[in-house]
Design a protein around this nucleic acid. Sequence first.
DNA 1: TGTACATCAGTGAACGCGCGTTCACTGATGTAC
DNA 2: TGTACATCAGTGAACGCGCGTTCACTGATGTAC
Lengths: 181, 181
Amino acid sequence: MADDQHPTRLRLLDTALELADDRGIAALSVDEVVRAANVAKGTFYVHFVDRADFLVALHQRFHHCLRQQMRSVSADLAPGAERLRAGTTAYLDGCRHATGVKAMLASARGEPAIADAVAASNDRFARATAPDFRALGRAHPVEAARLFVAMAAEVALLELQRGRRLAPLRQALWDYVVSDR
Amino acid sequence: MADDQHPTRLRLLDTALELADDRGIAALSVDEVVRAANVAKGTFYVHFVDRADFLVALHQRFHHCLRQQMRSVSADLAPGAERLRAGTTAYLDGCRHATGVKAMLASARGEPAIADAVAASNDRFARATAPDFRALGRAHPVEAARLFVAMAAEVALLELQRGRRLAPLRQALWDYVVSDR
DNA sequence: TGTACATCAGTGAACGCGCGTTCACTGATGTAC
DNA sequence: TGTACATCAGTGAACGCGCGTTCACTGATGTAC
């Protein structure tokens, strides 16, 4: 899916992800994006209907990469603590090196243009993680998964703000999941 | 603190909180706020240095109310599960009826103007909650508190989106804290 | 009590700026015959 | 092989609009003497 897109379109998206990390999504102007991507302003509208359409594509592109990384790591494992841990580690380490994570995690929910897309992908994340919590014997696996996703996003955001892995924080996240119950 | 402020200033802030619930913080324009508050545009700059200053005040006002509600409920209790539960319930029920919660929870972090203020108040929240996790015997009480705050915010946001209390979600939140360990 | 002055919230027209979007056009590439 | 036409990414000047901010001014209230 990632490679069947037009190079110029991809360049606009990737440039925007870099810019967004500094300024946030709301501050991404068409002017700024095309200037940074070395593309004429009209070209922007060759590839995107309007700015909102562009932001949705931006969100999609971001999540596509992360999801692939996670799937490749946990595909062979049976639902449970081990699979959850593998997926989570892949997610957190992926976030540390992907572009635009900070912007996506921090400001995506506040953008009306992509609020729906964010809600949908959070749902998808939670549903994909729910089987692990079901295997762990949780009474409310879907809800537990949903909250776990929120915690993982918080860890990713804090690690990005601090610029390094935060082992105690990851441990605290893990302590919430595995208890000698 | 809340009542020593000028009435017009308060009117601008409260009007903005109402507007923000629909459109998000980023979409709050000075024009729109003064129009909705029935105040001349110049008056805005009598009370606030600029738009960023206004947003910071907005964030302060929002958190001030919530914090008071929580303190009044948990002040007499000793750190531990019971105090945590009382404070959390006060927080969640407070969020369901306060104005501007959705905007503050969803889009505050993405606004460069108030990102620092948000980070600071998250810190404060976490530090206030850490003693409960220390009392519960957690290995990383500060980190656990931080993630708990993230989960509570997620619950508040989902309840607002759905427009009602979500009992299973609250239960899942609680299951993360009390386990028969 | 009356007069003069200071203070300060409030006003709204005016400003320059950067935004998102449009559109007539270019030029390279592919296709038909 | 040469000619005519179609397709389509790319261009950049131009547009109208709404933004944040300024500023000279008003008018009510308080203070001094």
